[in-house]
């Protein structure tokens, strides 16, 4: 099965999110399903994820260890905030089927956000 960098980014994040431990590129390679990508490919993916702000690298260790910057639930909350809150400056970003919640409608927002992630 051809693996694009995008789907590989997803698999790597899923692995990093699934544990509290930081991982080396070799540990990640061993945890990924076959055919496992080459370590250089994984390093490219990790560099991209670091640039996007999802992954932090511990460069004091050899080999470098990688851990997620925030939990999956925290990123999910960021995404749902985009979707649910009708703050003026973000209104043109996406088009909802039914309008969102105004930023001061805190009770509705909390109800909608509960159970996400």
């Amino acid at each position: 099965m051809p693996t694009t960098l995008g789907t590989l980014e997803r698999s790597v994040m899923d692995l990093l999110w699934s544990t509290d431990e930081s991982r080396t590129v070799y540990e990640l390679r061993d945890l990924l399903p076959d055919p496992a990508p080459a370590p250089t490919t994984l390093l490219t993916v990790l560099a991209r994820l670091e640039k996007k702000g999802f992954v932090a690298a511990e460069r004091s260790a050899r080999p470098h260890r990688y851990r997620p910057v925030a939990s999956r639930a925290e990123h999910m909350a960021e995404l749902m905030h985009d979707v649910l809150v009708d703050s003026g400056d973000r209104r043109a970003v996406l088009e909802r089927f039914v309008g969102g919640v105004s930023a001061d409608d805190a009770a509705t927002l909390r109800r909608l956000l509960d159970g996400t992630g």
């Binding site: 999910m76 749902m80 979707v83 649910l84 970003v93 996406l94 089927f97 909608l112 992630g117």
Partner: peptide, 11 residues
């Protein structure tokens, strides 16, 4: 997306 709020949107 996993989430209990019923939303549909396009990006």
């Amino acid at each position: 997306i996993e989430g209990s709020a019923p939303v549909a949107y396009c990006l």
